[in-house]
């Protein structure tokens, strides 16, 4: 089936795309929503402009849709972007990286239903520890590009999700209830390499922005 991937460039959307491809689906386009609202419940914001570089190494066209990020407007913008993908790339379905968010998945299911498209959420309800182990095993090079909860600090930015990270995050989970996969918005990720990429992305420059007591973002130049 021809699929459009709701794509933020973080681990969830890239791994969902990987699973779709592994299950013999065709990844026809990536759909990225650039929200001006950094607190959006629907879309992840850090480094989303870097999705262009990812689309190049994946050799998959990218549709970028801007949105002010206000609650109902961002849904209309998402619907418009998916409609564009249906028209231009003849997609028959959408794949998302939704894991736990009923808020996100309900809205995407409704849009797909309205547009007559299948909706795939291959990470839905996945066990978070098992998921990180799968990412590591499947050779995903994923780094942290945002941290937003105690006890994270700026030194976590750029850390790679590997077995050492898994041990550390499990301790954070036990001690501070940090979700192992960052599903509570505790951290944001960016994928630098994976089996869908023709070559690895390299960071040329980075800038760290402090947004609050335990809230830091890293903007990268690729």
């Amino acid at each position: 089936m021809k699929l459009g991937v709701l794509f933020s460039g973080g681990k969830d959307s890239v791994y969902a795309a990987y699973l779709a491809k592994k299950n013999k689906h065709e990844l026809s386009c990536l759909i990225s929503i650039h929200s001006e609202n950094k607190g959006s419940y629907m879309f992840h914001t850090p480094n989303i402009s870097k999705t262009k570089k990812q689309s190049e190494v994946m050799n998959i066209p990218l549709i970028i849709q801007k949105t002010s990020g206000e609650k109902e407007i961002e849904l209309k913008d998402l619907e418009e972007a998916i409609s564009k993908a249906k028209l231009k790339y003849k997609i028959q379905g959408v794949v998302t990286g939704a894991i736990q968010s009923v808020y996100q998945s309900t809205r995407i299911q409704k849009i797909c239903d309205k547009l007559g498209l299948e909706c795939f959420n291959p990470l839905w309800q996945i066990d978070e520890e098992e998921y990180l182990k799968m990412l590591i095993k499947d050779k995903f090079k994923t780094i942290l590009v945002g941290v937003f909860a105690y006890p994270f600090d700026e030194f976590w930015l750029g850390k790679e999700i590997n077995s050492k990270f898994l041990k550390e995050i499990k301790l954070f989970n036990e001690k501070y209830q940090i979700h192992v996969a960052g599903e509570g918005g505790e951290f944001e990720t960016f994928v630098l390499d994976c089996p869908l990429f023709s070559n690895s992305l390299k960071i040329k420059n980075k800038k760290i922005l402090k947004e609050g007591e335990n809230s830091f973002r890293m903007e990268v130049e690729l």
Partner: peptide
């Protein structure tokens, strides 16, 4: 009907 959907509708029950 689609294998990919099993990750969404069967695997969570299996878990």
């Amino acid at each position: 009907s689609d294998k990919l959907h099993e990750l969404e509708f069967v695997k969570p029950i299996e878990n």
